[in-house]
Design a protein around this nucleic acid. Sequence first.
DNA 1: AGGAAATAGATGTTGTAACACATATTGCAA
DNA 2: TTGCAATATGTGTTACAACATCTATTTCCT
Lengths: 162, 162
Amino acid sequence: MRLENEIQQRKFSSEMHKLAVNILYTHGWLVSLLSEALKPHDITLAQFNILRILRGQYPNPATISLLKERMLDKMSDASRLVERLRVKGLVERAVSDHDRRKANVRITPQGLRVLEEIGDFDEIIAAMEHRVSKQDSEQVNIILDSLRDIGLPGVQSVSERT
Amino acid sequence: MRLENEIQQRKFSSEMHKLAVNILYTHGWLVSLLSEALKPHDITLAQFNILRILRGQYPNPATISLLKERMLDKMSDASRLVERLRVKGLVERAVSDHDRRKANVRITPQGLRVLEEIGDFDEIIAAMEHRVSKQDSEQVNIILDSLRDIGLPGVQSVSERT
DNA sequence: AGGAAATAGATGTTGTAACACATATTGCAA
DNA sequence: TTGCAATATGTGTTACAACATCTATTTCCT
């Protein structure tokens, strides 16, 4: 449905204005779908992302810093997220031998099993592919990548701007 | 920059998979920009959205229910958001005469002044328009609107699905 | 070696989202 | 009219994001 109808009420001052609101709104919609799919497994989207990163490293451990770098939602609270996953038995943590400041975090077999059960949201992705073609997805990806190039302080370095 | 480089590490299993991640990532990027712009005015994005809705009603009041309906982030905690704005003097609240269950919430002149100062993020929108054409924005809007039509429980009614 | 600076992480705080549950009020039906 | 269901909102809880601050450890410099 058109965004104007879904949020009722407004006309947008420009297509870009609508695009900004559309990104915010579509994000909320997508997060709802994904969270709903995770609920039976009793983990949150943030915890799922941590597990995904850890699986990418497996069987090597990751440090908290590496998790922070790779997380989608910027730098957040990787320490406490890891702790909650540890309590659930999905990850294990140990102090590094070589640098006692570092924590080695590794996904457990049980954590790997949970990821397998979830199966990367294949059904949700498939449902979305019914509505939007590969070509359209590709184009949106290109445009969103361009959009972000206006420069986010802290992500973009001066040298990248030419 | 391409998403793969920004989040380092992965290849996506499909364009749609990348699109989903791209929406999550671009949302985070956009929220950072907007929050940064709001910081000098000492309000959060959620509070800003409430003020926008109230300005749309002005000089009529809105109820908490109406705010919940119009909020971008689904139904959340409109009561407590309004309370924080009230403490700041940006909104006022009164019990409805006709239905004492309802709260009449109205933006104050000071609240209107804050919105004027912020000016609808015009600079941010303009910066984004340097990177993405009106045509491209329009197309992304159409595609995102289609994407959401796969059906979000609670938003979509059976009668809308034909 | 000795100490400052940098690094890795933990911890505390505020504002929110998502959810369950409690309370007050209204409206409707028997 | 009485009583129950529906409505509108408030309150409590958990998990998070964003941010600041603190501690432990390592590295670097002299």
